[in-house]
């Protein structure tokens, strides 16, 4: 559905997007994960035809030009910054943007109703947007991107600044869209969102894709070993083979097979009072790839 090859975009000496390549299958939910300034939004805006790339190619729904009129009917964008008319009602916003895509009459009403339902705003349809909470505005921002039934939707950090309830609602909405076969490109700096919503994740930093795989693949290839902490009832006898250094009665080690190591300790007759296994996560992956934590950004 989407093929990107060696995409480049620079602002002066700053390379915002530096040789990005990936593809997204039809009906796939794909995440661009990275800290602020990683180049995620710039990549998305180039895909949506808002920005022109300095170099590289994009093939979107079989077409090389995302600014072509026919292609634009197939695309939906929920920008990071809210893009709504505060002086219009929720229904009026949807009606206006629907008409830009040639919707009218019963079909337009049907789409307005459907997207309001999807966003959980059916009972607020005739209220001015200026009276909405931040979370409601976010949901409407997403609904507007969907009113014309696009085949591909670009969601740029759609949960920024929303309350947990609205965040969950947005997650459920995206899961329904994914189940309905919509192709989704999702940018975020929240690892749990990428992990929950997307099949594959591209980790971006400084305009480059550092790794691209499924969650399991990223963890397996870049997460390193699980960290294991074991507390013994007494100091193990001298000569006992241990997988790591002993500090008093506490054993710390890392392993790609932590269960096997633990069962070997139990089989050796050692009395274990407590153990803890920390499996690698996207955070670990990012730490391993960049040398810093995602949350630090």
């Amino acid at each position: 559905m989407i093929e990107v090859a060696d995409l480049q975009k620079a602002y002066g000496s700053l390379k915002a997007v530096d040789g990005v390549s990936f593809h997204v299958e039809r009906g796939e939910a794909f995440a661009l994960l990275g800290p602020n300034g990683a180049g995620k939004s710039t990549t998305l805006l180039i895909l949506a035809g808002v920005l022109a790339a300095d170099a590289g190619t994009i093939r979107l729904a079989g077409d090389l030009d995302p600014t072509k009129r026919d292609v634009r009917y197939k695309l939906g964008l929920a920008p990071q910054a809210l893009a709504l008319y505060e002086q219009l009602t929720a229904a009026e916003n949807l009606a206006f943007f629907g008409r830009l895509y040639d919707l009218s009459g019963a079909k337009l009403q049907e789409r307005i109703d459907a997207t309001l339902d999807l966003a959980g705003l059916a009972d607020r349809r005739n209220d001015y947007v200026k009276s909405f909470s931040g979370g409601m505005k976010r949901r409407l921002n997403l609904a507007v991107a969907l009113v014309h039934e696009p085949a591909v939707v670009f969601l740029d950090e759609p949960t920024v600044g929303v309350d947990p309830q609205s965040r969950n609602y947005i997650f459920e909405t995206i899961e329904r869209l994914r189940a309905a076969g919509l192709t989704i490109v999702y940018t975020t700096h929240y690892m749990e969102e990428a992990a929950r919503l997307c099949r594959r994740i591209a980790i971006m930093d400084h305009g480059k894709i550092l790794a691209l795989d499924t969650l399991e693949g990223l963890v397996r290839n870049h997460g390193g070993h699980a960290s294991v902490e074991v507390e013994f009832a007494e100091t193990p006898p001298a000569g006992t083979t241990l997988p790591g250094p002993l500090e008093g009665t506490k054993l710390l080690f890392s392993s790609d097979r932590p269960q096997e190591e633990l069962s070997r300790l139990f089989q050796a007759g050692l009395r274990v009072t407590h153990f803890d296994v920390a499996h690698p996560t996207l955070e670990t992956v990012f730490l391993n790839l960049t040398g810093r934590r995602l949350r630090d950004e």
């Binding site: 009129r69 634009r72 964008l77 809210l82 893009a83 709504l84 830009l100 895509y101």
Partner: peptide, 14 residues
């Protein structure tokens, strides 16, 4: 300022 210009740019309108 209200971000809607971005939506107009991505719409099929020239």
């Amino acid at each position: 300022n209200q971000g809607t210009f971005l939506r107009l740019r991505t719409s099929p309108l020239s």
